[in-house]
């Protein structure tokens, strides 16, 4: 049975993009229907878990916090003090709720990538990082326009302090780097890290099955491959936390840039 199972698994080696498109749940087993899959379930689970956890921990706030309350406050305090206020300055407190929500949403969704038996992150589909990037993009432009006024904001963002004759050469670069690269790099950085992480774990797991079913003498190499899968899972944990942090910090940094006064 083990051999048969491994043969089935080995048939799927090497893994491809198809492995990210999981079977439809509603309607059950429908072909090429991706409206409600494991990915959808995971996103809803993440949203529900975050909402329930924070509501439950802040329900009856104690002066001497319980463990649950302490953890929730630590998360919020970390994002507020170490990301929002550090990057944006005192005005950053106003952005702390959004940044905390963003941080938690990305962190929990990324974390599904290494939870045993779940092991795929919704963020390995570019749609989710893309929407998050669009939200941050619209927000920092809106914040800048509200703070400076429309004309002054774009003047500030597009026209660097330089002599007039060089400006035609510089403005395209400013436009490209401030308004085109930013949302794109936010989305792609998160998506690519999660996609590559899932792919890496798939290669090492399925590779083990492929080798053992090709030749039983390769069994030790297969075992090594699976041990490496576990090691890589810990590496993934690092990437997961780092990417959630980087996304939040860069969003805060863009807001800071939009609010900055001319100097």
């Amino acid at each position: 049975m083990v051999i048969a199972q491994s043969a089935v698994l080995a048939a799927e080696f090497p893994p491809s993009v198809e492995d990210f498109y999981l079977p439809s749940i509603l309607p059950w087993g429908a072909e090429n229907n991706y409206w409600f899959t494991k990915i959808t379930v995971l996103v809803w689970v993440a949203v529900a878990a975050i909402i329930v956890y924070f509501l439950a921990s802040y329900r009856k706030p104690q002066l001497v916090p319980t463990k649950k309350q302490w953890l929730a406050e630590s998360i919020y305090g970390f994002v507020r003090n170490n990301i929002a206020v550090d990057m944006i300055g005192p005005r950053g407190v106003a952005f702390a709720p959004y940044l905390t929500t963003l941080f938690m949403f990305i962190l929990v969704n990324n974390f599904f990538g290494i939870v045993p038996f779940v092991q795929i992150s919704p963020n390995s589909h570019i749609a989710f990082p893309a929407i998050l990037a669009v939200i941050s993009y619209v927000m920092f432009i809106y914040v800048g326009v509200r703070h400076h006024g429309f004309v002054k904001y774009f003047k500030h963002a597009l026209i660097p302090p330089a002599p007039w004759f060089i400006l035609p050469l510089l403005i395209p670069i400013e436009f490209f780097s401030n308004f085109l690269v930013r949302p794109f790099s936010l989305a792609v950085r998160l998506f690519a890290n999660m996609f590559a992480g899932h792919m890496l774990l798939l290669v090492f797991t399925l590779g083990g099955f492929a080798m053992i079913s090709a030749n039983v003498a390769l069994a030790p190499v297969s075992v090594l491959s699976w041990v490496l899968t576990i090691a890589l899972t810990f590496l993934e944990f690092l990437v997961i936390c780092l990417q959630a942090y980087v996304f939040t910090v860069l969003t805060a940094s863009y807001v800071q840039g939009a609010l900055a006064d001319e100097h």
């Binding site: 406050e73 630590s74 305090g77 003090n81 206020v85 990057m87 300055g89 005192p90």
Partner: peptide, 18 residues
Amino acid sequence: MTGQEPPLGKHGDNGPTP
């Protein structure tokens, strides 16, 4: 930690860029 005030005055309102 939320009980603490955020570290205000670190940069000042019109202080230099963080």
